[in-house]
Simulated assay, not measured.
Amino acid sequence: MSDNINEINIDKDKNLSSSDSKKKILENNQEKKILKDQLEKEKDKFLRLFAEFENYKKRIKKEKFDIFEVIHEQIIIELIPILDDFDRGLKELKKSKDKIILKGISLIQEKLIKILKQKGLKKIEVKKGDEFNTDFHEAITQIPAIKDNLKGKIIDIVEDGYLLKEKVIRHAKVITGK
């Protein structure tokens, strides 16, 4: 009989330990699930932060490029009056008939124009008699047209206009007929 009691106690212990181990297994599984969820959240947070940082780097790079473009444009805009001065100076030098000085100044002007062309600067082609176009021309005044076919057309060019990479940076100043 005592053997039976011992067996019952052992069976009870087995049942207890089996239920405890099931409980522990369930607890461990729940802890694993919680840890996996936390890991996924942290991984997601990390990936979002990494993507945000990559976007930040791209944005900064673009802003830096844009700043250099604006500075480049400003420098070229500031050089345009020098081209005008060259034109006026050459007109006056042609009156003096000093060929050596005229040639030297012309070479310097050509060199400056060549450099600016390489940087994307182009002169707006304007001729007397062309149609007035507000995209490229600025009418500084209107005068009565001598002929009817000159109404709304360019009669004289006061100052050249320029494009920088297809963007108008200075409109050609013209006189139009009315």
Rank of each mutant, 00 (worst) to 15 (best):
S2N: 13
N4L: 15
E7F: 09
I8T: 09
D13T: 07
D13L: 15
N15T: 11
L16N: 10
L16F: 13
S19M: 08
S21D: 11
K23C: 04
K24E: 12
N28H: 08
N29K: 15
E31L: 15
K32E: 13
K32Y: 10
K33P: 00
L35W: 04
D37Y: 07
L39R: 09
E40F: 08
E40Y: 11
D44Q: 11
F46Q: 09
R48L: 12
F50W: 05
Y56C: 07
Y56D: 09
Y56I: 05
F65L: 12
I67L: 15
H72G: 00
Q74M: 08
I75G: 02
I77V: 12
I77F: 03
I77G: 01
I77H: 03
P81Y: 07
D84E: 14
D85Y: 09
F86Y: 15
D87S: 08
L93R: 01
L93I: 12
L93C: 05
K94I: 05
D98I: 13
D98M: 06
K99A: 07
I100V: 14
Q109S: 12
Q109Y: 13
E110R: 11
Q118V: 05
L121M: 12
K123L: 05
K123P: 01
V126L: 02
G129S: 10
E131V: 13
E131L: 14
F132T: 01
T134Q: 12
T134R: 10
D135Q: 13
H137I: 02
E138Q: 14
A139V: 06
I140P: 07
A145S: 15
K151E: 10
G152I: 05
G152T: 06
K153N: 10
I154R: 00
V158E: 13
D160F: 00
G161Y: 01
G161I: 00
L163I: 04
E166G: 04
I169R: 02
I169M: 04
I169W: 01
R170E: 06
R170D: 05
A172C: 11
K173C: 06
V174G: 00
G177K: 02
G177W: 01
